Simulated assay, not measured.
Amino acid sequence: MSYVSGNINTNSHIIPDATVKATTDPDQARKERAKDKLRKAEAEGNHLWAVTKEKLFQPAVAGGLFSVVNLGVIGGLGYLFYTTPAYRSDAKFIGSAAAGTLLLLGAEGVMAESYLQTEEGQREKQRAQEEGSALYRQTREVVLRPGVFGGLLGLVNVAVLGGLGYTAYSHWDERVWDRRWVTGLTVGTLALFAGEG
């Protein structure tokens, strides 16, 4: 037995301090770190939502998003009706699609109307009216010149007569051509030409 091991009192124990254990509890420290991270994530999420809301709900951006949604809905419905013929005669599906589309367009109209009630909406409306008026005046000035307008009417006439001629030529042998069709096409064409005159 050595001198060092002989002088150690085996009956003495070190009693840990209770205050040290309470402040250095690993579970409590882990919980505090998790709560702190959660608060930081919530604050960052709220900031990102505020920035996103500010950017998305500008009239031009929101209008563009509404246009994309509208095109998606109309295109999706058209694709479903085209690819699945059973939907064309399903009254429940047609009614649901019409109601959903009307609900979507109504909600967009309500949002646009509520935006127009704000000061920024009124300024945007005034600016759009001024731009629209200027665009209309410029278009009218360019298009309604005699040479331009006559050329546009000539293009419309050529397109109408060419379309009618092509349709008549390609479907000449079919039994579709009765007096009602011929009369309707003739009256429609004459009405178009009279309106142009």
Rank of each mutant, 00 (worst) to 15 (best):
M1C: 11
Y3K: 14
S5K: 14
S5G: 13
N9G: 04
N9W: 02
T10G: 13
T10E: 08
S12E: 11
I14P: 01
I15N: 09
D17C: 10
A18R: 14
T23C: 06
Q28M: 13
R30N: 09
R30Y: 07
R30C: 03
K31Q: 11
K31N: 07
E32V: 15
E32M: 12
A34F: 08
D36N: 14
K37C: 03
K40M: 04
G45V: 12
H47C: 06
L48Q: 10
W49P: 00
E54D: 15
K55N: 11
F57D: 06
A60L: 14
G64Q: 04
L65G: 04
G72K: 02
V73E: 01
L77W: 06
Y79E: 04
Y87L: 11
Y87I: 12
R88F: 00
R88W: 00
R88L: 03
S89T: 15
S89L: 07
K92I: 14
K92M: 06
F93S: 04
F93D: 00
G100M: 02
T101I: 11
L102H: 05
V110G: 00
A112Y: 05
Y115E: 03
L116H: 09
E119A: 14
E120T: 15
G121L: 01
R123A: 14
E124F: 12
K125I: 07
Q129T: 14
Q129W: 07
E131F: 06
G132T: 04
V143M: 02
P146R: 09
G147D: 10
L152E: 01
L152A: 01
L153M: 09
G154P: 07
L155S: 07
V156S: 03
V156C: 05
N157E: 05
V158D: 04
V158M: 08
V160M: 08
V160N: 02
G162Q: 01
L164I: 09
Y166E: 03
Y166F: 13
H171I: 12
E174S: 14
E174F: 09
R175C: 05
R179F: 06
W181M: 09
V182Q: 00
G184E: 04
G184I: 00
G188R: 01
T189C: 03
T189Q: 02
A191E: 05
A191I: 15
L192T: 10
G197V: 09
G197F: 08
